[in-house]
Simulated scan of single mutants.
Amino acid sequence: MPYITTADGTQIYYTDLGEGRPVILSHGWPLSSDAWQVELKLLADNGYRAIAHDRRGHGRSSQPWNGNDMDTYAADLAALVDALELDDLSLIGHSTGGGEVVRFAAQHGNGRVRKVITAGAVPPVMVQSASNPEGTPIEVFDGIRAGVLADRSQFYLDLTETFFGANRPGAQVSQGAKYDFWRQGMLVGLKGAYDCIKAFSETDFTEDLRALDVPILIAHGDDDQIVPIAAAAEKSIELVSKGTLKVYAGAPHGIYGDYQRELGQDILAFLAE
């Protein structure tokens, strides 16, 4: 399996498919690059070199004790880009991965980034505060931490209900999709999963968004129960200079079903512009 090794010795697993202009995809918590299998094939089938990595602590990458923070995640992505000698690069990030690609583009892009796409992404900042009253209360994230520590297997299964919007009337979410979420989640080391909760919920990406000088497509479902749109995409679009906001009516946090099919076509259209 293909790996690169970062400066602190962490091995980062990645998938590399197709030929053409490179596109890197960054996954959400607590998943892995497997979450992007459909999009990897879609991009490779349409003439792109599609690359997706497992974040440190996740999937098939190393599970180091340290470095489970957004600065290090972005530095790991920079190490991957350097190792593969990528230029004229587009980035796609879902949820936590949206924060990772925004930070990478702002702080490590060095003229190498062409476009950015986020979906259900955590920027500008998730946690509620006096300056971010639309955010999610810290008690919610404390509850996630407690759930992961107490019984992460059951917690991940339970999380699929709101992740995919399976708790909504008329929702049709397969057991297979839920089990695949659980499978990917169970590959995450406990320390990495626990630390990443702070990384995705408390990191402030405001200045990263302001620093972006490339086009960004900000995609978000208006029924996202994990990263509510009012505290995320609707604020991010006001901070970027070359942004396009695409709202998906009734779409959940998880990229699935009709939302996945529509987003895939929008990704191709945006990359081709």
Rank of each mutant, 00 (worst) to 15 (best):
residue 126 M to D: 01
residue 184 Q to G: 13
residue 171 A to H: 02
residue 223 D to V: 03
residue 186 M to W: 09
residue 160 T to K: 06
residue 209 L to Q: 04
residue 119 A to R: 01
residue 99 G to E: 05
residue 153 S to M: 06
residue 86 L to W: 07
residue 98 G to Q: 05
residue 221 G to I: 00
residue 145 R to I: 07
residue 118 T to D: 02
residue 185 G to W: 01
residue 85 E to K: 15
residue 188 V to K: 00
residue 190 L to W: 00
residue 128 Q to R: 15
residue 100 E to W: 00
residue 93 G to M: 04
residue 100 E to L: 13
residue 183 R to H: 13
residue 83 A to F: 00
residue 171 A to I: 03
residue 83 A to L: 07
residue 113 V to D: 09
residue 189 G to W: 01
residue 136 T to S: 12
residue 173 V to H: 10
residue 142 D to A: 15
residue 89 L to H: 08
residue 220 H to Q: 08
residue 132 N to C: 02
residue 91 L to V: 03
residue 146 A to C: 02
residue 85 E to I: 05
residue 182 W to F: 14
residue 132 N to Y: 00
residue 114 R to M: 05
residue 177 A to Y: 03
residue 143 G to A: 09
residue 143 G to L: 04
residue 217 L to G: 11
residue 207 E to Y: 09
residue 156 Y to R: 09
residue 220 H to C: 06
residue 153 S to H: 14
residue 130 A to R: 12
residue 182 W to K: 10
residue 128 Q to N: 13
residue 196 C to N: 13
residue 131 S to K: 13
residue 214 V to M: 11
residue 137 P to N: 09
residue 85 E to R: 14
residue 149 L to A: 14
residue 122 V to E: 03
residue 147 G to L: 01
residue 192 G to C: 02
residue 206 T to V: 06
residue 149 L to C: 05
residue 199 A to Q: 04
residue 132 N to L: 02
residue 109 G to E: 02
residue 203 T to V: 07
residue 118 T to E: 03
residue 149 L to E: 13
residue 147 G to R: 02
residue 92 I to N: 03
residue 179 Y to M: 15
residue 119 A to T: 13
residue 189 G to D: 07
residue 137 P to I: 03
residue 107 Q to T: 15
residue 110 N to T: 05
residue 108 H to P: 06
residue 148 V to I: 15
residue 141 F to I: 07
residue 219 A to F: 04
residue 205 F to N: 12
residue 216 I to W: 08
residue 152 R to A: 03
residue 130 A to W: 01
residue 118 T to V: 13
residue 153 S to Q: 14
residue 127 V to Q: 10
residue 183 R to I: 11
residue 184 Q to P: 07
residue 193 A to M: 02
residue 140 V to M: 10
residue 129 S to T: 13
residue 192 G to H: 03
residue 90 S to E: 02
residue 186 M to L: 14
residue 134 E to V: 15
residue 216 I to M: 11
residue 152 R to Y: 01
residue 165 G to N: 07
residue 136 T to C: 09
residue 175 Q to W: 07
residue 167 N to H: 12
residue 167 N to F: 10
residue 221 G to H: 00
residue 114 R to S: 14
residue 110 N to F: 06
residue 170 G to W: 03
residue 101 V to Q: 05
residue 159 L to S: 14
residue 156 Y to F: 15
residue 120 G to K: 05
